[in-house]
Amino acid sequence: MTQSLPGFPPSVIRRLVIKIGSALLVDPAGEVRLDWLRTLVADVAARRAEGQQVIIVSSGAIALGARRLKLPKGGRGSLEDAQAAAATGQIALSQCWAALLHERGITAAQMLVTLDDLENRRRYLNASATLERLMQLGVVPVVNENDSVATAEIRFGDNDRLAARIGQAARADAVVLLSDVDGLYTANPHVDAGAMLIETIERIDARIAAMADGGSASGMGSGGMTSKIEAARIATGAGAHLAIISGKINAPLSHWEQGGRGSIFLAAPAQRARKGWLAGRLAVRGRITVDAGAEKALERGNSLLPAGVARVEGVFARGDVVDILAEDGRVIARGLIEYDSEEAARIAGKRSDDIAALLGHLPRSVLVHRDHMAMV
């Protein structure tokens, strides 16, 4: 199976999400790179002709709008500038995609989403249903973050993670991130000539995470390799492969399928839909650090008991999402907390027999129930 994955061919990958960053789509003058984009659209059309369903996650609205509004710093000088640029540029961006896809006989649909749309369970299911219906109708959805209304507190901040979440919502088989580098290297290839490309990543561990570089080489986008690895965590946890390949050449998908370089993060066994959604959430309210015994218990599929908790951080209410950390700081799980932060801190490390007397009421038996927890 892994030998047939490079290129994510239609014979293996039924549904594919393709993410295009601002630096690839928009030139430094703020104009769409139409010649390059036509080659990508040709790639998409060829794959669809072979039966592959395609979803596009496209950056570029802020960069396009900033030029039209003559805003400094590419429209990113302030939140207000970015929102105005996005509102202006999104029209041009959607028109461009619709026109180029129409040239190939393909109907495009626009979807603008915010972080809340995919963090709220009901709205996430609505987005998932819309994507599914568009796929059934043979349409290519073009998705972007709705930067005209998103704020610093409620936004993805980069389209790498958005692409992974859209892949999860659409039940895609794979996600490909077109980048200014052709994969994950052992060091930043722009500054280290000895950096080596890693072609296959079976598990995202501390060694892989340490290779990430958070910078955006173009200064136009908002993500670097750190955001791509976070996207890989979300995608692979949802049962989808994720690839990072170069988008700096014409027809990048064809080039990759014909032997071009890239890095593939292999999918993990998919979790149940609700747990996959929970594991992929980006907004968490608190952090619960557990001892080694509790970590082993969670790995065996048990619920989190107060006795195994070493530390509670953050302000949260019952039902909020919290990260569960090992003693060394690794995030090992994510779940819905059964107590508010004040009570959770009071009962941390306490045995069940002692909790009723401490709180003055009959407590819930667990801090995070296994049915409302996903390992990450």
Rank of each mutant, 00 (worst) to 15 (best):
Q90N: 11
R274N: 06
R364E: 14
I347T: 13
R161W: 02
V32Q: 02
I208G: 09
A209G: 04
R104W: 02
A195Y: 14
A307K: 14
V142Y: 03
V140I: 08
Q271D: 05
T289K: 10
A86K: 05
A129K: 09
L362S: 06
L134D: 03
G237N: 14
K70P: 00
R38K: 14
I264A: 01
D353M: 06
L336R: 14
R14Q: 15
A150M: 13
L112A: 08
R334E: 09
I55G: 01
V368Q: 00
S148P: 07
E50L: 15
R261C: 12
V321K: 11
K350N: 13
E327I: 05
G77F: 07
A356T: 15
V44C: 11
R33L: 08
L101S: 08
S352D: 13
R330G: 08
E295G: 01
F8G: 06
R311F: 05
M196I: 10
E50S: 08
A206E: 13
R133D: 05
K70V: 06
T39V: 09
R364W: 00
A49W: 02
L336G: 00
G214D: 12
L69W: 07
D182V: 13
E230A: 13
A61T: 03
N144Y: 07
A270S: 14
A87T: 10
K19D: 08
M375P: 04
E31I: 01
K228L: 03
I20N: 01
A317Y: 07
K73G: 00
L359C: 11
G314Q: 11
I154T: 13
G247S: 09
E327D: 12
E153Y: 07
A344T: 05
A232E: 04
E295D: 11
D27L: 01
K248V: 12
L37G: 02
D116W: 10
A127Q: 08
R121H: 11
D340W: 13
D117S: 14
M111T: 10
D340T: 08
V175K: 00
D323E: 15
K248A: 15
R122I: 09
R47W: 08
I201W: 07
I204A: 03
N144C: 03
A297E: 13
A85L: 03
L242M: 15
G280N: 06
A333Q: 14
E327A: 15
D116L: 04
A310W: 02
A240C: 06
D353Q: 09
D158R: 07
I62G: 08
G286V: 09
A87Q: 12
A92V: 13
K248D: 12
M111H: 01
G280L: 08
A357P: 06
V315D: 13
H372R: 15
Y185A: 02
A348T: 10
W36K: 01
D354H: 07
S227F: 02
S341D: 14
G75W: 05
L359G: 08
I198V: 15
L93S: 04
N126E: 11
D147Q: 06
E80A: 15
A283P: 01
V315F: 12
L16V: 04
D353K: 11
I324R: 07
L304P: 00
P72A: 05
V284M: 03
L134Y: 01
R121C: 14
L115S: 12
G183R: 02
D328N: 15
H255P: 00
P363K: 12
D291R: 14
S128W: 00
G329Y: 00
N146L: 05
W277V: 08
L101G: 04
A251K: 12
T200M: 10
I201G: 04
A85D: 09
W36F: 09
R330E: 15
A163D: 09
